[in-house]
């Protein structure tokens, strides 16, 4: 009996729809990061490691465990999944500034390949465009709106290919956005390291549209997303309750992430200022890229 129970719990850790390339990517990143930690063996890496590994584990869990099944058949779990993929997970990963550890853990061939890729002109050009603050903000909000257009949402939940396109686009955009927002280097260090003020402005600008969308979903009197009735829900729950919970998840925690990021940026700003004023340079950027 105990074994049965344990087995059924373990089964919850298995992917509902295994995406092998995705699992391989996660495992590779994890291996490189842990190797990097070992090679550097610095105590100061530990807080970052906690954030990075938590973010990575969360993103993996919502895509490749039983949580993904629930996200396919419950609107509010789906909203929670996107909160993790687009906000929480990438936020923690970007906050941990993992570049140094990842670089230390990478085998030489991978580091060389990465440098070649990141140095190539088209990649740099595309990166600069999508990381332009206004475009990055529009992409961030635009993707949330796009996948919640009822007819688009209907197709995404019914068609396996669109479903993964939706989830991966949210994850990649989340990483890009929070990477831009939480870049710990002093502003101007690279062409895409923006001023703190600009970043706070973007964080404020993306808040109202998310609040508006979440409130509209939570306060709607009709069922907006009928695909969950079409596909059946994971357990019997009132469609309105499901929708209200999903609306609240789109509304409150999503907007709160902007507030949190603003606090992080203010701290970064004060640290940079202190470093600029003090005669001996404060090692503000030692943990950065």
């Amino acid at each position: 009996m105990v074994d049965e129970g344990l087995l059924s719990w373990l089964r919850l850790l298995l992917p509902w729809e295994p995406l092998w390339p995705l699992i391989a990517t996660f495992m590779l990143v994890l291996a490189i990061y842990v190797r990097g930690l070992g090679r550097r063996s610095q105590l100061s890496d530990m807080p970052g490691a906690l954030g990075f590994l938590t973010g990575l584990a969360m993103m993996y869990a919502v895509m490749q465990t039983h949580l993904d099944y629930l996200a396919q058949y419950m609107f509010f779990v789906h909203r929670g999944q996107h909160l993790v993929l687009h906000h929480l997970g990438p936020f923690l990963i970007a906050l941990s500034a993992p570049s140094a550890v990842l670089a230390a853990g990478s085998p030489n061939w991978l580091r060389a390949a990465w440098q070649r890729l990141a140095g190539s002109l088209p990649v740099r050009a595309i990166y600069r465009v999508v990381q332009q603050p206004v475009i990055a903000g529009l992409l961030f909000v635009g993707l949330i709106y796009f996948w919640l257009i009822p007819s688009v949402h209907f197709d995404a939940m019914l068609n396996a290919r669109y479903y993964w396109l939706m989830n991966l686009s949210m994850a990649i955009d989340g990483l890009l956005f929070w990477w831009l927002m939480l870049d710990p280097r002093p502003p101007g260090a690279t062409p895409v390291t923006r001023g703190i003020g600009v970043r706070i402005a973007v964080l404020c600008a993306v808040m109202p549209p998310q609040i508006l969308l979440g409130a509209w979903i939570a306060l709607s009197r009709d069922v907006i997303f009928d695909v969950y009735a079409v596909c059946g829900r994971a357990w019997p729950i009132s469609p309105m309750v499901d929708q209200q919970l999903g609306g609240l998840l789109t509304w409150i925690p999503a907007a709160m992430m902007s507030v949190l990021a603003t606090l992080v940026l203010l701290r970064l700003h004060f640290r940079n200022e202190r470093a600029r004023r003090s005669p001996t340079p404060y090692p503000a950027t030692s943990e950065a890229l």
Binding site: Y69, Y73, L158, V230, C231, G232, R233, A234, W235, P236
Partner: peptide, 23 residues
């Protein structure tokens, strides 16, 4: 067919609701 179903709690009469696809 990317649909699912689930069972609710049993009531005093042993009746339980079932969620299922409406399509």
């Amino acid at each position: 067919y990317r649909v699912t179903y689930g069972y609710g709690e049993k009531d005093k009469n042993g009746f339980y609701p079932v969620s299922h696809s409406s399509a």
